[in-house]
Amino acid sequence: MTLRVSVSSPQNIGAVPHGTRRTVPLNGGDFEGPRLRGTVVPEGSADWLLLRADGVLELDLRVTLLTHDGALISMKSFGLRHGPPEVIAAIARGETVDPALYYFRTTPRFETAHPTYAFLNRIIAVATGDRRADGPIYAIHEVL
C-alpha cells in the first residue's frame, strides 16, 4: 500500500547521549492498498528521529491508521535514512529529490483488534520512502 503522511513543525529536542533528537508530529495523511485504505489519525502520530554520529538518521514512526470502515490500526516503523551530504541538504531545504539518490527504508509492524485486518498482526513488511517537502510517501509491501 501507499502511505502519505503530512508533517507539522518539528520539535528539536537537541543533543542527547545517542545523537541529535527531533520529533516530527504528523497532522494527517492517507493510505491506500488492495486490502486496506483510510486516513491517518493525527493525534499521537509522529516520527521520532535520531541523527547518529555517523550521519545516519534513525526513524521511529508511530502512526494510528483509521480504515474506511472504522478500524483502528497501530503502525510502528523503524527506519534508516542516509545519503550523500548534498542530497540530504537538498531534502532539508524542502526540494523534491529522486528517492533513488538516497537510502530511505523502513520496516513497519501493525497491530489491530479488528478481525478484517487481523492478517496485519502476522506479517512483516518493508517500505521504501520518498521524502517530500510536506511529508514522506511510503511504498509498503508485505514480505511474502
Binding site: 555517523d54 545516519v56 523503524f78 534508516l80 512483516i124 514480505v143
Partner: peptide, 26 residues
Amino acid sequence: YLRTLPRFETAAPQYDFLNRLLAVGI
C-alpha cells in the same frame, strides 16, 4: 511463515555498511 527484520551493529570499519542497512530474513 518465518520472516524477520535483522539489524546489525559493529565497530569494525570493514563492516560499517552493516550499521547502515535494513534487512529482511526468511
